[in-house]
């Protein structure tokens, strides 16, 4: 057994092509990003080496830390929303009528490009003609909120859109994982008299714990580098109230022509992701698996 499964040549054959692709197309840009971060460069003309100046500025840049806080909040909300996705997936995995159809319907939003999703949510949040405020006005609310224009609400308004946008992504992963649980285990528990909630909690969840851990990492890392809807829906405004790390980085690099600083922000973001992933690995490590 060990001999066959330890064949060095086979391992190399299986791993190297993919490793080659990512080392060239991902590690090369990562290294260059770190390198640009040491430069004073507008992305257009000559570069000048400034050492760690950009990184030093970063540590005292209030706007950066504000946007970092927003990114962390998004990460927290996305992780919490995994519970909701999981519950929906568990219900749909049960033997209820129409679950196949419902599951397909639930995944529809993930097919839409962010351009479409942003337009939809702009229409939902429009302060005068929007779906929510039309409804609120109809039921007699006078001072309807202005959502995306309100510095206190804007971030959470977008979070709702993002959480909705990603529902399909996680439900499809959880659904596939739940389908992978052998029917016999569930049947055995039923014969023993377990109710659906007990089956879900005691049998299904432990069996897909590996998948759950993966989705936690995906949700956190994905949130920390999230960009799309925020950039289209608010551009980070009003006055930075919905700025996140990636949109801040983009503005620095592409709009304000401080490519060196933007790269430093990008590289720092990568470091934050690494540290957090490492922490998650430590916190959720278990004996019988490879730690990831």
């Amino acid at each position: 057994m060990n001999k066959v499964m330890s064949n060095k040549w086979v391992i190399a054959l299986y791993v190297l092509p993919a490793l080659l692709v990512i080392s060239v197309l991902i590690y090369f840009p990562i290294i260059l990003t770190g390198y640009y971060g040491l430069m004073d460069w507008d992305g257009i003309g000559e570069m000048t080496f400034v050492g760690l100046e950009n990184y030093a500025n970063l540590l005292t840049d209030e706007k950066f830390w504000d946007s970092a806080l927003h990114s962390f909040l998004l990460a927290a909300f996305s992780t919490l929303s995994l519970v909701g996705y999981l519950i929906i997936s568990l219900i749909l995995a049960g033997k209820i009528k129409g679950s196949e159809l419902l599951r397909k319907i639930y995944l529809i939003p993930m097919l839409l490009s962010s351009v479409a999703i942003a337009q939809l949510w702009l229409k939902i949040y429009d302060p005068n003609n929007g779906i929510i405020n039309s409804f609120l006005t109809a039921v007699g609310v006078e001072n309807t909120p202005v959502w995306l224009a309100d510095s206190n609400l804007v971030l959470y308004s977008i979070f709702v859109a993002i959480i909705w946008q990603y529902a399909g992504f996680y439900i499809i992963i959880y659904s596939a994982a739940l389908k992978g649980i052998p029917e016999s285990l569930v049947e055995a528990a039923k014969i023993d008299g377990a109710n659906p909630i007990q089956i879900a909690y005691k049998i299904k969840l432990p069996l897909i714990s590996g998948v759950i851990k993966v989705t936690i990492i995906l949700a956190i890392v994905g949130s920390l580098k999230y960009f799309d809807l925020i950039y289209v829906m608010t551009g980070g405004g009003p006055n930075g109230a919905s700025e996140v790390i990636a949109s801040y980085m983009y503005k620095q690099a592409f709009s304000t022509n401080d490519f060196g600083y933007g790269s430093a922000v990008g590289f720092f973001l990568l470091v934050i992701c690494l540290v957090i992933t490492w922490l998650i690995r430590k916190l959720t490590a278990s004996e019988d698996e490879i730690q990831y």
């Binding site: 991902i26 990562i30 990492i217 890392v221 920390l224 990636a246 980085m249 592409f254 990008g266 992701c273």
Partner: peptide, 8 residues
Amino acid sequence: LMIPIHSA
């Protein structure tokens, strides 16, 4: 997973 696309 962690590299922002615009950096690349």
